[in-house]
Write a protein that binds this DNA or RNA. Structure first.
Lengths: 335, 335
DNA sequence: CTGTTAGCGCCTTCAA
DNA sequence: TTGAAGGCGCTAACAG
């Protein structure tokens, strides 16, 4: 039983030298006797010495850990993102604490508090879809805990963040549909609390305007992303005197729900009504009738960039004033 | 800027008492003056005092964190599991470090080492599908770091673990198919390194034997779960003089791949060949032609149980000798 | 080149 | 009921 791990103190005693010498030898300090250095390192190896990270964290008031709070890991968008975050963090010697808000503001608050109390060095967070106040996040500033928003970012402000250019993504999608001859295009936009909802609308309107098509407000439905509201929205759209011939969905999950409901109403998918959405999740590849196209948002890369941004701040490689929100271009994946 | 967080030392100074008194007052130590206690707690509240978890971790050699290593979070089975783990851990005051092996043994090793060096209090791990040696895991014993295997458990031994009764799940599935009139049932079993592969085979054979159907070895294909091998297996099965009329797939992802390939070969899904699989992932609900049935494995609950088991060990609520591998019953979800 | 000292924040004997 | 002292493992400023 290696129960007790060796400490530098032990090494020092065995070698009859001081702990500081051991510490320096272990760190390859320049002005240290070659002989002693060798001795120390040899013994350290023999004893299987490993620095106690807990002690180091304690001393340096830094625990080389970042906290990541995402709404829902079973959404592939977020699970791919966490991979990107994890890879970068690991590479830079950090570990990743994970927490899911499950779209609950309360859980989000609790998680932020927990991570703060655990003194993580920084956080990456996608706000829950119900988050419309940000006091629990602003507070992190006071504690000097850097925060990078990921994908779902709060309105206004220019806090550090990484997100995709949803507006142009929506334009790409609508232009694609118009190119296919559609003029009656509906939009399932998300809840007002997510600025990405507004951005979808802007892109949608801009694209239509660019093609000289007027916006029919009846075709724009706000939903909370739940299957139920999606169902209602689809029902409402189908009940319209002149139905849309295409629907741009908030994301692939909404799209799957929408397709399912539409199918129940005997709509022939991508014939009677064409579907286009956001995210381009792997799941789409398994559908026999996927949406016509989906806006790729590169979650893995976004995760990487968010982690890099956060670590830049933590390690002070960049002054905070130089850290700008990062907006990534999307591209339309056509099936 | 609250830059500097208050410490008990500060409180002590302001109140002209000793740190030990403060410490005790904060902990509601029995023999402490009511007046002093009140004073201390009041000031603590005013200063927004919060114990430094880093210091406490350091002192107690315990950092109230567990490490979880899973193959792939974008597989819903594992992302649901992590939710269960997270919920239990959070509830008991622990945080969760996450790492994905991405099915690479090397990454798995690195993660185990990283977490060990970070002195996590315990780990939960699903071995990668290529893991066939366990030295990197056995070593944790020496360091007194408890480990609970989750779902993918190593052969033999009775290390603490939580997994489903795959054998009986396979029986359920095969019986279901036999009930539908199938006698020619193929099995896509997984790699030999996963004991769950063998368990599938056992259940498959037992069920067939029970129904008086002889096992045709040509119908049992070992695959590594990659789409490519799935494709080859399907091709091989279709090339058989008398094709199977049903296929039991290793899990839903394999099943989706299999269905996709079969469809390309003009097979009518669940008519020419019926498909049944394991996991019952949410994704199945979005398929217009899902497998006929899928063996529900309750990943969320399994995650919870694994976390509870691990925390029982960590907190020594149970002697290690009493911690037995836990095998959960599955149930067949019919679509 | 190496040793001594002090301290990070907290808890826990041991004394008073 | 309270205080003083020591120590967890490591680093770093200050001395030789």
């Amino acid at each position: 039983m290696d129960q007790k791990l060796p400490t530098i103190k032990e090494i020092a005693q065995r070698l009859n030298i001081s702990v500081s010498t051991v510490s320096r030898a272990l760190h390859n300090h320049p002005r240290i006797g070659l002989r002693t250095k060798m001795q120390v390192q040899k013994l350290a190896r023999e004893l299987n010495y490993e620095p106690n990270t807990l002690a180091i964290s304690f001393k340096q008031k830094k625990w080389y850990t970042i906290g990541v709070i995402l709404p829902e890991l079973s959404e592939q968008f977020f699970s791919q993102a966490i991979s990107g975050i994890e890879d970068v963090a690991t590479f830079q010697g950090y570990t990743v604490l994970i927490g899911q808000s499950h779209e609950s503001v309360d859980r989000e608050k609790v998680l932020v508090e927990t991570f703060r109390k655990h003194r993580v060095d920084g956080m990456i967070l996608s706000v829950s879809k119900h988050t419309d106040q940000y006091g629990h996040l602003d507070i992190l500033d006071k504690y000097n805990i850097p925060l990078v928003y990921f994908d779902r970012i709060p309105p206004g402000g220019n806090a550090p963040s990484v997100s995709s250019n949803i507006r142009s993504g929506a334009e790409q999608a609508v232009n694609f549909l118009v190119g296919k001859g559609h003029t009656h295009i509906a939009l399932l936009k998300g809840p007002a609390s997510l600025i990405a909802s507004q951005q979808r609308l802007e892109g949608y309107e801009a694209a239509l305007a660019g093609r000289g098509i007027s916006v029919d407000p009846a075709l724009v439905r706000e939903i909370d992303l739940s299957p139920e509201e999606t169902r209602l929205a689809i029902a409402a759209l189908l009940a319209l005197p002149n139905r849309p011939t295409a629907i741009l969905c908030f994301n692939d999950y909404v799209c799957l729900d929408a397709i399912q409901f539409a199918r129940k109403e005997k709509i022939r998918i991508n014939e009677d009504i064409s579907f286009v959405s956001f995210a381009n999740l792997p799941i789409c590849n398994f559908l026999d009738v996927p949406p016509l196209a989906s806006v790729e948002q590169h979650p893995y890369q976004q995760g990487q960039l968010a982690a890099e941004m956060l670590l830049d701040i933590i390690e002070k490689r960049k002054p905070l004033s130089e850290v700008k929100p990062l907006v990534l271009d999307t591209e339309l994946r056509i099936f």
